[in-house]
Amino acid sequence: MMTTQALPSALAAIVDDFQALSEPERLQLLLEFSEGLPELPERLTNHPELLEQVVECQSPLFLTIETEKDGSTGSATAFRLFFKAPAEAPTTRGFAGVLHEGLDGLSAEEILSVPDDMPELLGLTRAITPLRMRGMTAMLGRIKRKVAAASGVRA
């Protein structure tokens, strides 16, 4: 069993929350994350071409990242994450919500340190089916690849 030690603190806290719950409660928590997923800012809603679709998800899920740069050195300091998923796909939205709350605003090193199989730690595989879990794994993989490409750090 993986531990949450290697995870960034916000993500580790989310994983701990899921693990402390029974299966039905975990689904309820995932629903809350789906409701809490922030809307896209206007500059992105007007430019859907800036978002990439994660085709492994069973419902349409689009995401992108933006880099926040240090004013004096110009180097990337933090990455902002943006997701779009329809309201009729709450499971997919819930996964996006977990990744947003757990990873938004972190550095490349922190995001890239997240193990690829982190979604398994949420304890949802039985209730949600392995197929869906792969959708979330693909979402995480896509974020890591984009962050690696934008920061020049190897994933």
């Binding site: 689904l27 309820q28 995932l30 629903l31 789906s34 069973q58 419902s59 309201a87 009729e88 796909a89 709450p90 499971t91 997919t92 819930g94 039985r126 209730a127 949600i128 089916t129 869906r132």
Partner: peptide, 22 residues
């Protein structure tokens, strides 16, 4: 539904949920 959480987002009044998978 296919989506295990969709019922919880709102359903026909009085409807119960049966999940194909669980």
């Amino acid at each position: 539904d296919e989506d295990v959480l969709l019922y919880e987002t709102g359903h026909i009044p009085g409807a119960v949920k049966i999940d194909w998978h669980t």
